[in-house]
């Protein structure tokens, strides 16, 4: 994916750029708002990672508002030290698609950036999802593996649906909490792990290879290969 990073802190920028490149993405970096807006408007990016507080007379909110006013639909992830709920709401209102507060784990950033990049590409409504021998019918709300029906609770169904929509990508626990349970809070302990392990028992137990994988220090991934 082509990613634009607008971030004024040198160390954070270097660390994020390096990480994204190592994950196979192309990264352009701007260290102030005006340069960032120029790049965002003239080039074609899959995702923009945007800091809120930027030097050069244009902060992240203004940049995004200006960009959205030109009709650009590119997904934008805010990366900001402004963590209060009001700031978060402001960022999303200005046209942001996701909001991650500093300090952050790189795996969380990467997972969110990749999820946003994919969201941009698949707009068409789907009725069926399938990964390897696992099939999900979104209309009938049914799941089959190797043609064998699997009974899932509604919440487990939504959890699996999210994992399947992001198959091959790392999905963090916070992303699951926000997408499946629709809450933004700190669960203290890893309650999500319990839910994933229950789902895993229904999906993977008794089959030749596992589909749900734990990614160390990051989260989970649904993929066919081991």
């Amino acid at each position: 994916m082509r990613i634009l990073l607008v971030e004024d802190d040198e160390d954070v920028a270097r660390f994020v750029t390096k990480g994204l490149r190592e994950s196979g993405h192309t990264v352009d970096h701007a260290d102030q708002g005006r340069d960032g807006l120029f790049l965002a408007a003239s080039e074609n990016y899959d995702v923009i990672v945007l800091d809120r507080m930027l030097p050069g007379g244009m902060d992240g909110l203004r940049l995004l508002e200006t960009l959205r006013a030109t009709g650009a639909k590119v997904p934008v992830l805010f990366l900001s030290a402004l963590a209060q709920v009001d700031e978060r709401v402001k960022g999303l209102k200005a046209g942001g698609d996701d909001y991650l507060t500093k300090p952050f784990a790189f795996t969380e950033l990467l997972a969110r950036v990749e999820a946003l990049g994919r969201r941009g590409r698949s707009d068409a409504p789907t009725t069926r999802l399938s990964v390897a021998d696992l099939e999900m019918d979104l209309l009938a709300r049914s799941v089959k593996r190797c043609g064998k029906p699997i009974e899932l609770q509604p919440r487990e169904f939504r959890l699996l649906e999210f994992l399947m929509r992001h198959a091959g990508q790392v999905v963090t626990r916070t992303m699951l909490l926000e997408a499946v349970w629709d809450y933004h809070f700190d669960p203290q302990t890893n309650v999500i792990d319990v839910h994933v392990s229950r789902l895993r028992q229904k999906i993977d137990r008794g089959f030749s290879f596992p589909l749900i994988h734990t990614v160390r220090n990051a989260g989970y991934m649904l993929r066919a290969e081991a």
Partner: peptide, 26 residues
């Protein structure tokens, strides 16, 4: 009191059911 800006009407029973769902497994 800054969080009050996020106040909205909600169904506490549904919200607690979600909490129960989340933590019941644990």
């Amino acid at each position: 009191g800054a969080r009050r800006s996020a106040f909205a009407g909600l169904d506490l029973a549904a919200l607690l059911a979600d909490a129960g769902d989340l933590y019941g497994a644990a």
